[in-house]
Design a protein around this nucleic acid. Sequence first.
DNA 1: ACGTTGACGACCA
DNA 2: GTGGTCGCCAACG
Length: 113
Amino acid sequence: MQPFTKQVLQIIQQIPKGKVMTYGQIAQYAGSPRGARQVARILHSMSTKHHLPWHRVVNAQGKIVIKDEETALNQLMQLEAEGVYVKAGMYVDLEKYRFKRDIVPMEEQDRTL
DNA sequence: ACGTTGACGACCA
DNA sequence: GTGGTCGCCAACG
């Protein structure tokens, strides 16, 4: 298993209950700022295994964009069960629920996602 | 080894 | 708000 993959798994496991992270964030923290797609791919193949809180991961728009309807619905339910309100259209409020590490790059702080 | 794929992201019209 | 292109890079066939 690649170090990047391992990092991604660890980071996801560190997301606290009631918070969410974006694919891009995770990729960046894992050491591959442009590796958002790899994060997605890892989840796609590893979600069922590794008892992973994958439902706390959404895209940069705070939206759940999973193709499989059942999986997406499952994610939505798990988020709301943790107190994360999911708006119509499957959007979550990133400003409110986004989880940030203790140390965040300055560039990211300026950015108003 | 090589070409394709993809739970994405940023940018532009 | 919508819809399109391009880049990214590990996993897969």
